[in-house]
Simulated assay, not measured.
Amino acid sequence: MVVINDDAHSDSYEFMDVQVKTDDSSCLTTVENPTLITTTNHQVVKLQLNATSSFHTKCCVCRENLRDHAVKISSRDRDFIFFSRNIWIPEGARCCSGHLINNLLSKEVVDQIKPFSIRYQELSSSDVQLLLSKAQTLFKNGKKIFSLDDPRDLNDDEYCLLTSLSRDSFNDFVQIISSSAIRPSCNRSIRTAIGIYLCKLRLDNLGFGHVTREDVIGGGTTAITQELMCGGNSTDIPIIIIDGTHLYIQKSRNNEFQRKTFNLYKKGSLLKSMMIVTTTDYIVACIEPFMSDFNNNDAAIMKDISLRNTDHVLSWLFSLFLHNLK
């Protein structure tokens, strides 16, 4: 909260008291009536910021004594933490090398960082313009669905879903492959290329032909689901979850295709797919993309799949029933 000084001859603005809890003691470090001072002649703004430590002998993250492999916090990480956590990391601050993944602070480390003290930082007009430009860039990048180049963008479960590898295993795999002859290009990095390749490998192992009903019944169904849906007695009924999902695409120049892919509810161009998974989150099948206009809701897509018996879904679901009829 900012209270503007009514004095016409004053250039100062008064803030409310700020309290920062440090890890070194149980007490609170209190700064009373900190001020934001603007000097019109020199175009300098003095800001009161929550800041980390900047000792050359201690890590600004864990505050332990630095070892031989200390590294400086990159400007990219400093900007990201300032805009996402409202914590200022002074230029030149160092941390332990174990906190980094691909030269960037890991997500766990970003969440771990805490302010050490209140710092008065002077910023020139050009510094303020640069901060605004960086904030705009981060906002644009934040609108992307996901990025494999930023290790903080996806959590461990999302890595497993896309690549079937945990985040740590994926990072280790990228590090091993990067030492080979593979090279990045202007269109994609090595990390993105490996991620896309693993996603394609996972897609090749989809469909009702790659898993049997017995596998789903025996290992793909939770006990509570069996109890709720079958009374815990049936061992020959597969239980699956069918739900539609969507994938955003670029706006097409083809007017007819654009109209069929524009979704009024999501207010964007996208394609829909029908996901068929088990109660243990194992993906059994992903039925081909459909248009996303008002004609293709989940019920209409499921009706189309049933009528065409796509990927022999009916045979897979009711094979035991059809066998008994014969």
Rank of each mutant, 00 (worst) to 15 (best):
D6P: 12
R119W: 01
G195Q: 04
M1L: 09
S75C: 01
P184W: 10
A193P: 02
D149Y: 04
K58I: 07
I242S: 14
A70R: 05
M229P: 00
N155E: 12
D281E: 02
N155D: 15
G268F: 03
F318N: 05
C230R: 06
S166R: 05
L131R: 04
N296I: 04
S126H: 09
S125C: 09
L104V: 05
S133W: 11
D17F: 06
F321D: 14
D153M: 00
K272H: 04
V174H: 12
R259I: 04
D153T: 06
S26M: 14
R76H: 14
D11I: 06
F294M: 10
L49W: 02
D298H: 03
L307D: 08
L132V: 15
P238A: 12
L161H: 13
Q226F: 07
S319M: 06
S84P: 12
K260P: 01
D293S: 07
K267L: 04
R253M: 06
D24Y: 03
T38I: 13
P115E: 01
R183C: 07
K58S: 07
N324G: 07
N141P: 08
F173Y: 04
L138C: 13
F139Y: 13
T192K: 12
P238T: 00
K58R: 08
D204L: 15
M1E: 10
D17Y: 08
L138E: 03
A285V: 00
K326W: 09
N65S: 15
M275Y: 10
S106I: 02
A51N: 01
F139I: 07
D311S: 08
T137G: 03
L264N: 15
L47F: 15
A299F: 11
H42G: 13
L322D: 13
R253F: 13
V211Q: 04
D311N: 09
M1K: 09
T40M: 04
L307I: 13
V45G: 00
A70S: 07
D77L: 02
D17V: 07
E214N: 11
S169Q: 10
D6N: 13
I101D: 08
K267G: 03
E256S: 12
M291F: 04
G231C: 07
S84H: 08
A193F: 07
T279E: 01
S169M: 09
M229I: 09
M275I: 10
G142I: 08
N5D: 15
S117D: 06
S306K: 15
I89V: 01
N171G: 06
I249H: 00
T310H: 07
V45N: 03
L322S: 14
L154V: 04
T192C: 12
W88N: 00
D149H: 01
H323F: 12
I239N: 03
K143E: 02
E14V: 11
T245K: 06
D149A: 06
T225W: 11
L264Y: 03
S252L: 12
N41S: 14
L322H: 14
I118M: 10
R152E: 01
F146T: 00
D168N: 05
L130M: 12
V109W: 02
N297I: 01
H210A: 11
C186T: 10
N255V: 07
I237M: 05
P115V: 02
G218I: 12
G220K: 03
T39L: 11
R213G: 14
M229W: 08
T30Q: 08
I305T: 11
C62H: 03
S178Y: 01
S292A: 15
V3I: 03
H210N: 15
S12E: 14
Y248W: 10
I241R: 13
R94C: 08
H99S: 09
R63S: 14
